[in-house]
Amino acid sequence: MQTQTCRPCAVGTYSLGTGVRFDEWDEVPHGFANVATNLEVDDGFGDAAENCTASTWVPLGDYVASNTDECTATLMYAVSLKQSGTVTFEYIYPDSSIVFEFFVQNDQCQPTVEESRWMRTTEKGWELHSVELSRGNNVLYWRTTAFSVWSKVPKPVLVRNIGITGVAFTSECFPCKPGTFAPASGSTACQLCPADTFSGKGATACQPCDSDTYAGERGHPGLPPPRAVPLVYDPG
């Protein structure tokens, strides 16, 4: 059997060691299943199930957004843990007309005992949710179903920064996101760029903004300067 050895990640990249993190949502990451179904009983008036095929979770850069119709959208991820671990994620759940649940199933497809399966709505920005995971196979489910009220479209559930600990090892290093950098090898996280500096993906350092650009927030990839708009008035 060939000997396996661990090596530190190169500069500009990071690794969690015995964990994985999903913080980029330009597309649904590899390993996730993203499906939509109609849980209502077919009443014989058309292809209800087919109408739900596009009602899945939508990746939007830094986060993924739920559906907002009466279909049921499920985001799933299967992971095998060599030791007990945890799953954490941040979420915004502003509208109670969407039912939002998160739960975990074990090897026997039985849901784990978890009182917080039904998520609570959020009031002020992002909130952190954490659930303990058992050793062995675990399937994670983020599921939403909306109920329209007076034809009002509800606000979607947003999820970001999914992290899982307890895996045996990670087989790859991940490049730092734009606006962050890793100056040394073997990094477990990327650092935010200071204000008025920027970086691209996989950066080892941040660069100062040009004189006609700025980056007002730490960790921002950089923005063009605001344009001056002349003031006008109507004397009449």
Score class of each variant (00 low, 15 high):
Gln4Thr: 07
Thr5Arg: 04
Arg7Gly: 00
Pro8Met: 01
Gly12Val: 03
Val20Leu: 11
Val20Pro: 01
Arg21Thr: 02
Phe22Val: 05
Asp23Val: 01
Asp23Asn: 14
Asp26Gly: 07
Glu27Lys: 12
Gly31Ser: 05
Phe32Val: 05
Ala33Leu: 13
Asn34Ala: 10
Thr37Lys: 11
Thr37Gly: 00
Gly46Gln: 06
Asp62Phe: 09
Asp62Glu: 11
Thr68Glu: 07
Glu70Gly: 13
Thr72His: 08
Thr74Trp: 07
Leu75Ala: 11
Ala78Lys: 15
Leu81Trp: 08
Val87His: 04
Val99Met: 10
Val99Thr: 14
Pro111Trp: 01
Val113Arg: 09
Ser116Asn: 12
Ser116Pro: 00
Asn138Tyr: 06
Val139Thr: 15
Leu140Asp: 10
Thr144Asn: 03
Lys152Met: 06
Lys155Cys: 00
Val159Ile: 15
Arg160Thr: 07
Arg160Gly: 01
Ile162Leu: 15
Thr165Cys: 00
Phe169Asp: 08
Cys173Ala: 09
Cys176Val: 04
Cys176Thr: 03
Ala184Thr: 13
Ser187Val: 01
Ser187Arg: 06
Ala189His: 08
Cys190Pro: 11
Leu192Thr: 06
Leu192Pro: 12
Leu192Phe: 12
Asp196Phe: 14
Phe198Thr: 14
Ser199Pro: 11
Ser199Asn: 07
Gly202Trp: 09
Ala205Phe: 13
Thr213Glu: 15
Pro224Cys: 10
Pro226Met: 11
Val229Gly: 03
Asp234Trp: 06
Gly236Arg: 09
